[in-house]
């Protein structure tokens, strides 16, 4: 199949970028989207041009490195699929594909389709952990956890941190990510002691990073490669409210 690509090219963080058109000819429908870009890149290299830079690593949909917006949809048109697992058979011969980086102030573009997502790490550093040092853990079965509770925590924990939620949100909000991270721990009894501290500091870190706000459209959940539910955003909203109120009436 032959495709027309319009790809965002940007030299570095401080340069301005633009869409550049490429012809992608003889693309095998069995290719993954990133393999298609590999092929385009090899051709660019052969003709002495600089290849398109894009983040990728595991190529099996779990590391969360790959990130591209295809025709306005992060990770492309196939639901619950990262761009590395998106295959070209989902496109038609002759299609024009506009490929852009994830866009958000908190995710500055550093080259072509690559963005800096370290803001997510800052959020986790702010409180996305249970403070247990190595060696101080009790025997694992001393604390039984209801199966459905563990399953719910796992639903939240399956977040791969790719940032598609931010990219899809019209406000570049990181609420789904923060909610998934905090709800994973807050749902489990081990995470309860730090629950309030956690939501307060994670939301503060989120605000500081310059993400926008949730307008409850749930685009985030719709593009999420792991289909993480917006229910966790509801949970975060509730927990943050309680935590803020409690904080006012607790002496430190």
């Amino acid at each position: 199949m032959d495709l027309k690509l319009r790809v965002w090219r940007q030299k570095d963080r401080n340069s301005s970028g633009k869409l550049v058109e490429y012809d992608a000819r003889d693309i095998d429908p069995e290719m993954s989207f990133l393999e298609m870009l590999d092929v385009v890149n090899e051709r660019l290299i052969d003709s002495g041009d600089e290849p398109i830079a894009f983040d990728h690593d595991c190529r099996e949909g779990i590391c969360g490195a790959c990130s591209a917006t295809i025709n306005g949809i992060p990770h492309g048109p196939h639901r619950a699929t990262t761009v590395c697992q998106l295959h070209m058979r989902h496109f038609q011969d002759g299609d024009t594909l506009t490929i852009e980086p994830f866009r958000a102030r908190a995710f500055p573009v550093i080259r072509d389709l690559m963005v800096d997502r370290t803001a997510f790490d800052r959020i986790v550093e702010a409180g996305g952990y249970i403070s247990v040092g190595t060696g101080s853990a009790p025997e694992a079965n001393t604390l039984p956890i209801p199966k459905d509770q563990a399953e719910r925590a796992m639903d939240a924990a399956s977040c791969i941190g790719c940032g598609a939620c931010v990219a899809a949100c019209k406000n570049a909000s990181a609420m789904l990510f923060v909610a998934a991270k905090s709800s994973h721990l807050n749902t489990l009894p081990q995470g309860k002691p730090e629950k309030e501290r956690r939501v307060l500091s994670m939301v503060a870190a989120m605000d500081e990073a310059g993400f926008g706000n949730c307008t409850n459209q749930y685009e985030c959940s719709a593009v999420c490669p792991k289909s993480i539910s917006e229910d966790f955003i509801g949970q975060l909203n509730r927990e943050y409210f309680v935590a803020s109120i409690k904080q006012q009436f607790t002496t430190k």
Binding site: P138, P144, P146, A150, H184
Partner: peptide
Amino acid sequence: DQCTAQGVPFAREYGGH
């Protein structure tokens, strides 16, 4: 033990173990 304490959501039985 360590991973469970960190909040790794291992699969559980109905009894919670």
